[in-house]
Simulated scan of single mutants.
Amino acid sequence: MSFYDAVVPAYLQMLNSLTGLLTKAEAHCAAKKIDPSVLLGSRLFPDMLPLSKQIQLVSDFATKGCARLTHSEVPSNPDTEKTFEELKQRLAKTIDYVKSFKPEQFAGAEAKDVTFPTGPDKTTTLKGQQFLSAFSLPNFYFHCATAHGILRHNGVEVGKRDFMGQT
């Protein structure tokens, strides 16, 4: 398996599944007459980030993961989304960005140094394989699962198949 095959399909699967989850959440709000901002601001626990931020972080980890692994310029994505539609547009933009990468861009990425910020004045450098398996993908999946959990906790009828999306 190429490094590209370990990276791009994983990101795309979950980005697409989150798009479906947001569509179901939006329909849930309409059917139950719930103000969408209430669900978008929901958290699993008071010290956790809300649903909207979970989606933004999923987008960031996919975008920045691909960029850093290929030593491409890391795009800036301001967190301005306030509606389901805006979050779905952000996911669509992220999907297009991830799809734009070619397998050859990931050639040798597993052994190359990846330097990334880990605090206000701190960076960490890992080899590409370690960056992917110990940082980028775990964070990506954490925020995907948390978004799913927030929706499920708030009564949106989603399950494991919705989380897994189309494989």
Rank of each mutant, 00 (worst) to 15 (best):
F106Q: 13
F3C: 05
K127V: 09
A109D: 09
A109C: 09
G165L: 10
G155L: 06
L137S: 10
V98T: 02
S76A: 12
S59G: 05
I150C: 02
T167K: 15
D162N: 10
T70P: 04
F163C: 07
H71D: 14
S100T: 12
N77Y: 12
V98I: 01
Q56Y: 09
P75S: 02
K33V: 14
L57M: 14
S100I: 12
L87M: 01
Q166Y: 07
G159R: 00
K33R: 15
C144W: 09
L44R: 15
L126Y: 08
F61V: 01
G159N: 01
T83Y: 01
A147V: 10
Q105Y: 08
S72W: 02
D79W: 04
H148Y: 15
Q129W: 02
G159D: 07
H143F: 14
V58K: 01
D79A: 12
G65V: 05
E81A: 13
T124C: 07
D35I: 15
T115F: 04
S52C: 14
K160P: 00
L69F: 02
V158T: 12
T94P: 11
L15W: 00
D121I: 07
Q89V: 02
E110H: 07
T146I: 10
P78R: 00
R68D: 00
M1E: 11
G128P: 04
V158K: 11
K127F: 06
V58P: 01
Q105F: 08
Y141G: 08
N16S: 13
K122L: 13
T123P: 07
A27W: 06
G119I: 11
I34Q: 07
K127Q: 08
A109L: 09
K82Y: 04
Q89C: 04
S52W: 13
Q89Y: 05
E104M: 06
I95T: 08
I95C: 02
S59D: 11
V156L: 01
Q129M: 10
K112G: 06
S17A: 14
T83H: 03
L132H: 12
S2N: 14
I95V: 14
T125S: 00
A147Y: 03
P36D: 07
Q129D: 11
A109V: 05
A109S: 14
